[in-house]
């Protein structure tokens, strides 16, 4: 059981690392191409919400999942003994 938990944690951390690399890549693409992207966002066509909401979903999913995995196997695990459910 211990070994399995260790593996789970390791694979989660690897996934989180890849996620953070993916996030860095996404941010790099957006910020280096920001003049073009901002022009699309100012276009007031359906392309504007598609672009912004697509980037938002991608960023929140990749980065959010990575941060979630990192915190789950560090802080959350550390605080497991302190969990309360008194209501």
């Amino acid at each position: 059981m211990e070994i399995k938990q260790g593996e789970n944690k390791r694979s989660a951390m690897i996934k989180a690392l890849f996620g953070l690399l993916g996030t860095a890549l996404l941010y790099y693409i957006v910020f280096t191409n920001s003049p073009t992207i901002l022009e699309i966002l100012k276009s007031k066509t359906y392309l504007a919400p598609l672009t912004s909401m697509g980037i938002v979903l991608l960023a929140s999913f990749i980065y959010g999942t990575s941060v979630g995995k990192l915190l789950k196997h560090t802080l959350e695990e550390r605080l497991k003994s302190q969990q309360l459910r008194e209501e």
């Binding site: 941010y27 957006v30 910020f31 920001s34 992207i37 901002l38 966002l41 100012k42 276009s43 007031k44 066509t45 359906y46 504007a48 919400p49 672009t51 912004s52 909401m53 980037i55 938002v56 960023a59 929140s60 980065y63 959010g64 941060v67 915190l71």
Partner: peptide, 26 residues
């Protein structure tokens, strides 16, 4: 998000920088 984007008010750079802090915070 849809309404503000179709009216051309969204600066995606601001949104992405907010995410860096808020997804840790949440």
């Amino acid at each position: 998000a849809f309404l503000y984007a179709i009216n051309g008010y969204v600066d995606i750079r601001i949104t992405l920088l907010l995410y860096l802090g808020s997804l840790i915070g949440i």
